[in-house]
Design a protein around this nucleic acid. Structure first.
Length: 677
DNA sequence: CCAGCTGTAAACATTT
DNA sequence: TAAATGTTTACAGCTG
């Protein structure tokens, strides 16, 4: 009974089949006919066949070469250690494996939270922003769809060519076509990043006191070095590809800068063309823009068609100079601009997340097909954590029961098996040992609603210790219950149900739970007819953490200043995101009835701290907690003020009521609830 | 360095 | 009687 588990969940990656075949044969038939029409008469059928055979062989050789290239790319992706310089001269024919497109930025939950924490904006501005971004996203998705199809088509063609021998012409066409689309995608990404980074460079992003100098460096915090390296490669290769194909983008000079940078892992995330100039890294000096604009006159991402493209602005500027003037005057470094920028950042990153997910899916598909068509041993590459995870995730969806019960080895808390790709980077960080996050941690590396939404599923399936204290979790469990009271056993069940981590070492954490229940005054034991139940004394609970965050007045101030803009914004943003059915939010927040609970767990911790730090009178105005500025889904859902839960912000919390989640039910009876997408 | 918070372990008492 | 439930103490790690 030791540790034989762990494997049954990994399961058959074959769950993903290329069901999406079909439809692309017509081209090939045409091409085949075309190939045969080169003067061969039907009479010399044998000769024609021979010729076709030779052609086929040639094409196969070509194909093998391409596949080799593919594999190399993939391996480079995996190792992330090989030569930082790629071959600049990739043949245009090369199958665009989209390595370059993969995950331009992987956003960690912490990063998201940072963004969410800081954002401030008026509803109108938000709407404009959202509209813009929606359009962008739509565009991107369409492109991506097309790209995917093209990829599938190409793959199919390649596969079929191996067996039937076909004409390379069509294939080349498709390949070049795909390359074009890939470039388009890349350009879009770059545009987004340019936009974002130019904002940053203008100093519109305030750097938190605790943050490092590089504005985007926080983005890298959740990544392990290899991931960074890989990312670096991807980005560089993306630029390289652009370079070789004669991209009309006006920013290629920086590519070399970045490539030659000696600290790729740190700079890869600011690979934006505008981000660095002449070897300088963008160290968030606000006045940098003039420099870069000398190099790229009139190519400012915020300026186009004589209009300022600052979100929500649209001021008419006749020429570039007046635009710059306008930019400096109207969009100077202030709270509003900062907030807008943060929102933009968030939106962009959301999009990128989505994009990254789709890319990963594509990559997984391609890997699968590719591997199938060639050699099967290329598949189990540890590589692509991403794609492998994607595969295994769908596999686990096929057999959702496979996960829980068996306790796994205590030393391997991370189970990437069922984890969504986008959380990989952070979760691997989360997992490291018995890291206990404290309140202060949550301010510095906080947990966003997005994080929660993802983590909800994540923590259910991965044995990662949740970054919440026992007290918070217990309280949450109790408050989640309809009666706001639970027996000890029900609390246990809640823990096991909500967190895979608590499905092992039961003795330990149960002891801790009991210990906490007894220790904290906020937990009140109430004798019942059939035993005793535990309830939460909110007053005590709030009382018990006044001193937190007090050491960081600037942060508090920042939060408070953000408050005015923030609340409606987050609601609208989330609603919009939900409307766009971005899985990040929708799967968890809509599909999962208990989404908001974790959210509130964290929220409450933050709330309590903030309320007490903020002032002593805040108790009398519960709805005005400054944490509304901190947490996007802040909804006071304490029983004290239930009416506050209504309103625009209830998007997430309304999902709370979960009649299906009977807390009395044993975990064994109801394992992890399956993710219904 | 200290105080406070948190998690873990363990001993012990009480209840079921 | 055993297991579950509660209580309490001790200690280590972390943070401000």
């Amino acid at each position: 009974m030791m540790q034989e588990s762990g494997t049954e969940t990994k399961s058959n990656g074959s769950a993903i089949q290329n069901g999406s075949s079909g439809g692309s044969h017509l081209l090939e038939c045409g091409s085949l006919r075309e190939g045969r029409s080169n003067g061969e008469t039907p009479a010399v059928d044998i000769g024609a066949a021979d010729l076709a055979h030779v052609q086929q062989q040639q094409q196969q050789a070509l194909q093998v070469a391409r596949q080799l290239l593919l594999q190399q790319q993939q391996q480079q992706q995996v190792s992330g250690l090989k030569s930082p310089k790629r071959n600049d001269k990739q043949p245009a024919l090369q199958v665009p494996v989209s390595v370059a497109m993969m995950t331009p930025q992987v956003i960690t939950p912490q990063q998201m939270q940072q963004i969410l924490q800081q954002q401030v904006l008026s509803p109108q501005q938000l709407q404009v922003l959202l509209q813009q971004q929606q359009a962008l996203m739509l565009q991107q998705q369409q492109l991506q769809e097309f790209y995917k199809k093209q990829q599938e088509q190409l793959q199919l063609q390649l596969l079929q060519q191996q067996h039937a021998g076909k004409q390379p012409k069509e294939q080349q066409q498709v390949a070049t076509q795909q390359l074009a689309f890939q470039q388009q995608l890349l350009q879009m990404q770059q545009l987004q990043q340019q936009h974002l980074l130019s904002l940053q460079r203008q100093g519109l992003l305030t750097i938190q006191p605790g943050q490092p100098a590089l504005p985007l460096q926080p983005l890298a915090q959740g990544m392990i070095p290899t991931e960074l390296q890989q990312l670096w490669k991807e980005v560089t290769s993306a630029h390289t590809a652009e370079e070789t194909t004669g991209n009309n983008h006006s920013s290629l000079d920086l590519t070399t800068t970045c490539v030659s940078s000696s600290a790729p892992s740190k700079t890869s995330l600011i690979m934006n063309p505008h981000a660095s100039t002449n070897g300088q890294l963008s160290v968030h000096t606000p006045k940098r823009e003039s420099l870069s604009h000398e190099e790229h006159p009139h190519s400012h991402p915020l300026y186009g068609h004589g209009v300022c493209k600052w979100p929500g602005c649209e001021a008419v500027c006749e020429d570039f100079q007046s635009f710059l003037k306008h930019l400096n005057s109207e969009h100077a470094l202030d709270d509003r601009s900062t907030a807008q920028c943060r929102v933009q950042m968030q939106v962009v990153q959301q999009l990128e997340l989505q994009l990254a997910k789709d890319k990963e899916r594509l990559q997984a598909m391609m890997t699968h097909l590719h591997v199938k068509s060639t050699e099967p041993k290329a598949a189990p590459q540890p590589l692509n954590l991403v794609s492998s995870v994607t595969l295994s995730k769908s596999a686990s969806e096929a057999s959702p029961q496979s996960l829980p019960h068996t306790p796994t080895t205590p030393t391997a808390p991370l189970t990437p098996v069922t984890q969504g790709p986008s959380v990989i980077t952070t979760t691997s960080m989360h997992t490291v040992g018995p890291i206990r996050r404290r309140y202060s941690d949550k301010y510095n590396v906080p947990i966003s609603s997005a994080d929660i939404a993802q983590n909800q599923e994540f923590y259910k399936n991965a044995e990662v210790r949740p970054p919440f204290t026992y007290a918070s979790l217990i309280r949450q469990a109790i408050l989640e219950s309809p009666e706001k009271q639970l027996t000890l056993n029900e609390i246990y069940n809640w823990f096991t149900r909500m967190f895979a981590y608590f499905r092992r070492n039961a003795a330990t954490w149960k002891n801790a739970v009991r210990h906490n229940l007894s220790l904290h005054k906020c937990f009140v034991r109430v004798e019942n007819v059939k035993g005793a139940v535990w309830t939460v004394d909110e007053v005590e609970f709030q009382k018990r953490r006044p001193q937190k965050i007090s050491g960081n007045p600037s942060l508090i101030k920042n939060m408070q200043s953000s408050h005015a803009y923030c609340t409606p914004l987050n609601a609208a943003l989330q609603a919009s995101i939900a409307e766009n059915s971005i899985p990040l939010y929708t799967t968890a927040s809509m599909g999962n009835p208990t989404l908001g609970n974790l959210a509130s767990a964290i929220r409450e911790e933050l709330n309590g701290a903030m309320e007490h730090t903020n002032s002593n009178e805040s108790d009398s105005s519960p709805g005005r907690s400054p944490m509304q500025a901190v947490h996007p889904v802040h909804v006071k859902e304490e029983p004290l003020d239930p009416e506050e839960a209504e309103g625009p912000l209830s998007l997430v919390t309304t999902a709370n009521h979960s009649p299906d989640f009977d807390h009395d039910r044993d975990y064994e009876d109801e394992p992890v609830n399956e993710d219904m997408e």
